[in-house]
Amino acid sequence: MESAQPVVTPEFRTATTADVPALVALIESAYRGDASRAGWTTEADLLEGRRTDPEGVGAVVDGERSRMVVVESDGELVACCQVENRDGHAYFGMFAVRPGLQGGGLGRVVLAEAERFAREEWGADAMHMTVITQREELIAWYVRRGYERTGTISPFPYGDARFGLPTRDDLAFELLVKKLG
């Protein structure tokens, strides 16, 4: 029986400025527009417009306390994530897996690498992230990987097009935390 997912052998590296356009395209494809519907991480039913832009990704790539992880397989960009050092804990964001590769285990591998890096390189004792509260399936995925729902809710930045154009008026973020000890 053939696998529905292509075999991916991930190679990790730190992003450079030259990667920014490809990273923006990957992140957009995983979350927005019709192309994102090929995967399960789409936000297309909640938000329209852009998920990020070259300036936002570039700020992570160039940040002193952040690392943008690029994941390649056979020389092609297949996933990425942001890890940011925040004094004792790390923040995880800008996580994207190419839509056609979602559901095959690559996301788990990328998340584990981000956690390893934060713990071993920065001595972080926890990983934090925020997830849109309406993304129950995604939150459940993180909970299965050891993240805890904190109940700490922050408002969605309505009116700031850098975060997308909401299609509903009840969006908010919940803080998820995992001890890395």
Rank of each mutant, 00 (worst) to 15 (best):
L77K: 10
E113W: 10
S29D: 12
G105P: 08
I139V: 04
T167S: 11
F156W: 05
S36W: 03
V69A: 05
R67H: 10
G123K: 11
D169K: 06
S29F: 01
C81F: 02
R145E: 13
Y158N: 03
V177N: 05
V61M: 04
V177W: 04
R145L: 15
T152D: 14
R37Q: 14
L171K: 02
D19E: 09
V20D: 04
T42R: 09
N85Y: 14
D62R: 15
V57E: 12
V97C: 09
Y91R: 13
R13K: 07
G93K: 08
F117S: 11
R51V: 04
Y142E: 07
P157A: 10
W40S: 12
K179C: 05
R50V: 05
R108V: 09
D125T: 13
G164V: 02
E64R: 05
P157G: 06
S66W: 04
E113C: 00
R149Q: 13
A140Q: 12
L165V: 15
S36I: 04
G88Y: 11
P155E: 15
R67P: 04
V177Q: 09
T167R: 15
T42H: 11
G105M: 07
N85G: 10
V24A: 08
E55M: 09
M68T: 04
A4G: 14
R144L: 08
T133Q: 07
K179Y: 09
T133C: 13
F92A: 06
A118H: 01
E115N: 03
P21C: 09
S36V: 00
G107P: 07
V131S: 08
V83H: 10
P54E: 13
E11C: 15
V7E: 14
L175V: 13
G49V: 00
F92I: 10
L111R: 14
G181I: 08
D62E: 15
F117V: 05
V57Y: 11
R145W: 05
R144W: 02
S66R: 14
Y31N: 02
V177M: 03
A30F: 00
